[in-house]
Design a protein around this nucleic acid. Structure first.
Lengths: 137, 137
DNA sequence: TTCGTGCTTGACGCTTACGTAAACGTAAAG
DNA sequence: CTTTACGTTTACGTAAGCGTCAAGCACGAA
């Protein structure tokens, strides 16, 4: 076997890459940017559940169009130590900010979906017109 | 006055830029990429309502994290001529595809908002703990 | 020992989406 | 006529997010 007894708790870089359909290069790049910090066993990277969760969060952030810098700030919020009051207030501020952005995006999505629905209706109408016409020839 | 009798129907590049808070460079870049096709009056660009709508669509697409290439395809769907059956079927296919993407993004947003809410709750709890502690000293 | 497989670290390349001058046109106002 | 405002093209610069070699280590199988 390739996986030893710890296979339920850790992953190789290739396993993570396969699971989330990204390249090894991408995962290493995220590490370069400080987004992932896998354990080292010798020279090889060993990924723990925490890293796996973070990778999932990173990819979700990317789908939402956030830059890696923004994602770093967001993801780090999850792991933040309680810390001092100033830190906490800052965090709450960031949360408000992100929430505003996300709600804007949600509105954008709703609008776009509605627009698409209209185009679709038009398409179906045009198709019907075409077929009625060819049926009458 | 700077605007002649047609001011209700057309805009200069600077007016559009100010209205949507983008630079002139950005607007010209979108034209380069074929996303906008303003009229030319002499050498100057004159934007009609159609261009204005398209710019709004482009920016919405950007907020959603689409690339300009994808946005071009999406926006062009709105203006598509009825065309032949193959074209229409292709368009309907594209619509389905975009809808799937957008629904994925909407799920991502919901999840992220939930996560943020959890972090927020934790923050408030930590803050309360800090203040209770300092009050008892 | 040699091979294959998987992993490693550089390091250069590429595309996207603009920023940022540079250098010039045009047209109304003072 | 000159200034000012607004516009133009050309072109090089840049940050982000990887792709793509190149060269080498480590380790189990043959």
């Amino acid at each position: 076997m390739h996986n030893s007894q710890v296979s339920a708790e850790t992953w190789s870089i290739a396993e993570l890459a396969a699971e989330y359909d990204v390249t090894l290069r991408t995962i290493r790049f995220y590490e370069d940017r400080g987004l992932l910090t896998p354990e080292r066993r010798g020279t090889a990277r060993v990924y723990h559940p925490r890293d796996r969760v973070r990778l999932a969060l990173i990819l979700r952030g990317k789908r939402l169009g956030f830059s890696l810098d923004e994602i770093a700030r967001i993801v780090d919020m999850y792991d933040a130590e309680p810390g001092e009051e100033g830190q906490l207030v800052y965090l709450l501020d960031q949360i408000t900010h992100r929430r505003t952005e996300l709600e804007q995006r949600r509105r954008d999505i709703e609008e776009t979906l509605q627009d698409l629905a209209e185009v679709e209706t038009r398409c179906h109408a045009d198709l019907k017109a075409l077929r009625d016409q060819s049926a009458s020839s």
